[in-house]
Design a protein around this nucleic acid. Structure first.
Lengths: 230, 230
DNA sequence: CTTGTTGTTGATCGACTGATAAATCAATGC
DNA sequence: GCATTGATTTATCAGTCGATCAACAACAAG
């Protein structure tokens, strides 16, 4: 009787009835919810609040993830490892198109992925927590993007390729200067909600122009130094 | 007797006796301790741990700061409002020295202040917490530094001053690109503990070179566009 | 309609949080 | 030396945290 009455209430009330999902679907739902929840509240956000946002009870989370840390680990896995696009490096090396065009397209694609509050906020949180995610992402960016782009600019300038002469520290840092500048545009806009003065496409165009003007100057400087030593 | 015995122990033992400081000194000590503590652990760090790091008991903190939020507010006040150097803008406008030299010196001084783990970590934490500190700092930087530097570069290039023709969106963002790039060097080094390829002085030199090469190019672009419209 | 499986919940534990109040102790003035 | 003032501590409260477990309920098979 109590059961019947309860069921009736449950069917009419706004408070939705017990939603019964398949094991895999529920797991996915919790993981996706956790991504946006931890992005907003940081990893110190409580599992009860996360459960409330998901519309389930807190112990249910522990049915799918043994500990909160396990859940967090999967969040990282999904957001970072899962969003790196393998074709980014291919795009950079596509000699059938002018470098300027390739760079603009690359940064358009790249920022489509990382300029989301989820991606940026979790990235910043994890950096402050001292996890190695950021250092890993940075070294990945350096190996798969920055060194390649430096090499393309060398090629464009008629300078020796990376195979013939290692990318120098000055070149790497000069490119990091630009790359970080673009990253930080996203942080200003998405995290600090600070007004930016150009829409993203124009900003990318301007940045690529600046990049392609400044890097050859730095390279000349470096190469001149190398030659002086030789 | 027990008192005397205790005093004797206390004088010799490592566990220090009840340190009785003046009200103002204790307040300062707690505030300074809070800066480094919150920088390391974030604002979710517990007051008990902070007290332990200070070598005092937890309730003592509440004798000087009514709530934890009050303490945090004073941390912000001390770190940000208190560390802006008024002479930075003067330095930039000192026409008796070449612009390149001024910029190198400015960024040397500027990074001396902000490239500390305390400053950077609290800055990043507060940004994620949604406080307005960051947006405030950014607009301060834009008004007191970036616009002035853009104006100096205009002057160097024989272009109309900011008074005659407003600094354009493209110029602002182009400069933000560099400024953020320098900021992020500090984040990579101090927060992510990621290897950087140049020591700071060389990095600043390279960045200023890149800046002074690229910005005129962007400006030419902009001015050409303006003239075409006129 | 009954039974078995399993997704889901309510109740609860111990540890820890910010905060309070009363007790204690060190220094100062007399 | 003694009393007073105020800095500091001990003890404690209510609330929240991550985590556990037995009870409950939805669906499928028989």
């Amino acid at each position: 009787m109590a059961g019947a009455a309860r069921r009736a209430i449950v069917k009419t009330a706004a408070a939705r009835p017990r939603q019964r999902l398949s094991s895999v679907d529920r797991r996915k739902q919790i993981l996706q919810g956790a991504i946006s929840f931890f992005a907003e509240h940081g990893f110190d956000g409580g599992t009860r609040d996360l459960a409330k946002q998901l519309g389930v009870t807190q112990p249910l989370i522990y049915n799918y993830f043994p500990t909160k840390d396990d859940l967090i680990r999967e969040v990282y896995q999904t957001v970072y490892v899962g969003r790196w696009r393998a074709d980014w490096s291919d795009l950079i090396g596509d000699h059938s198109r002018p470098l300027r065009e390739r760079l603009i397209e690359f940064y358009t694609r790249y920022t489509e992925v990382i300029f989301s509050p989820d991606w940026l906020r979790i990235y910043l949180f994890s950096g402050l927590k001292g996890l190695q995610i950021n250092a890993m992402w940075i070294s990945f960016v350096e190996d798969h993007l920055i060194r390649r782009i430096c090499n393309e600019i060398r090629r464009e300038q008629g300078l020796p390729s990376a195979g013939e002469m290692d990318i120098t520290a000055a070149e790497l840092e000069a490119f990091w200067l630009f790359h970080s500048g673009i990253f930080y545009y996203g942080v200003r806009r998405e995290i600090y909600k600070s007004p930016v003065h150009l829409p993203l496409p124009s900003f990318i165009e301007t940045s690529v122009l600046a990049m392609l003007t400044a890097l050859p100057a730095v390279m000349d400087d470096v190469v001149r130094e190398r030659l002086a030593l030789a």
